[in-house]
């Protein structure tokens, strides 16, 4: 079976609390409509062949790579033998199809493999969730992250893509200037800084909310993946959470249970963790970055990587 996606890479503008419109480059799911930060969530069953047709409306060449996936990159080099791109480039104005077979379930990034220090920072990344065999979106009884026996049955799932924005770098690159080093001033979950993380999903350039709502006793699976360039220490306050997978490798197998409890979890760039908890007594519980200079917007608390788990 083949699952087909079409993505358009475009310029756009995101809104961050306390900042004017910030230019970004992102992926859009349609030829009309804005680019998204992060890119559209791609949801595919394990074992499928995924074909992504990428149309590049940006001024420079871009590419797609699939870290953590079973694929053979085809790097492009210049005559001197130096990397130009980690996978074939889609030239400005062109279209190219990237394909891979998703061989294991989990949460993954797709992102640019061309000048990633600029293009990923500008927003050319998104998440892909690969469903295990037997997963039926219409039947909650089948909802697991990694299949039966992996201890990852859930009632509520929330994907959280972490990243940072250096607004000065965005302004420079959007104007064709060279940026002066990396110094992020905004810290994002799903493309949004707190308190925007609390808003519901919408159809704008930052369509993915990050608030979790669960009834007491419901099993909540947080799938956190770091698309930024620095580590983030994610804390779930007052809730005992169990780490059940790292880099999409389930920690619970029939022979060994390597899952562990952790209230503050360091997630390095490019890494993912799945954490599972049971929604406790009604109340509001905060999830935030214990790197306390990342739960601000610019210089103002609260902000950044922060959201709420609401148990009504």
């Amino acid at each position: 079976m083949t699952v087909n996606y079409n993505l358009w890479a475009k310029t756009g503008s995101i809104s961050l609390p306390g900042a004017g419109p910030v230019p970004f480059w992102g992926f859009a799911p349609a030829t009309e409509g804005p680019a998204r930060l992060p890119g559209p969530l791609l949801e595919v069953p394990q074992g499928e062949n995924v074909e992504i047709s990428l149309t590049n409306d940006l001024a420079s060449g871009i590419s797609l790579v699939f870290p953590g996936q079973d694929f053979v990159p085809q790097p492009v080099k210049n005559p001197a033998g130096t990397f130009v791109s980690y996978n074939p480039e889609t030239a400005s104005g062109g279209t190219l199809t990237y394909s891979l077979t998703v061989s294991r379930p989990g949460i993954f990034l797709y992102e640019s493999g061309t000048a990633p220090e600029k293009q990923i920072q500008m927003g050319l990344y998104g998440a892909m969730v690969v469903r295990p065999p037997g997963f039926d979106p219409g039947n909650p009884a089948t909802w697991t992250a990694y299949g039966s026996g992996s201890g990852t049955d859930f009632d509520i799932e929330k994907i959280m893509v972490l990243s940072e924005v250096d607004t000065a770098m965005h302004q420079a690159l959007a104007s064709g200037d060279e940026p002066a080093g990396y110094k992020p001033d905004y810290f994002l979950i799903n493309g949004r800084s707190f308190p925007d993380t609390l808003n519901p999903d919408d159809s704008g350039p930052q369509p993915y909310g990050a608030k979790v709502t669960a009834a007491p006793g419901q099993r909540v699976l947080l799938r956190i993946i770091n698309a930024g360039f620095m580590n983030h220490n994610i804390r779930l306050q007052d809730i005992d959470a169990r780490v059940v997978a790292g880099d999409s490798r389930p920690l619970i197998t029939p022979v060994l249970d390597k899952s562990y409890l952790k209230h503050t979890l360091t997630i390095g760039s490019g890494q993912s963790y799945d954490i599972l908890f049971t929604a406790p007594t009604p109340g509001k519980y905060v999830l935030y970055d214990r790197n306390l200079n990342c739960c601000v917007n610019g210089n103002n608390f609260p902000g950044g990587i922060m959201t709420l788990v609401e148990v009504p």
């Binding site: 249970d257 390597k258 562990y260 209230h263 214990r290 306390l292």
Partner: peptide
């Protein structure tokens, strides 16, 4: 143990040896 939780699941022991511990903020 990390974050005040013993690194054990039942009889399964998850403790580990290190010469450098990355002590994360808040942990």
């Amino acid at each position: 143990a990390e974050d005040g939780r013993l690194l054990k699941n039942g009889t399964t022991d998850l403790s580990y040896k290190r010469f450098t511990i990355l002590t994360g903020s808040g942990q």
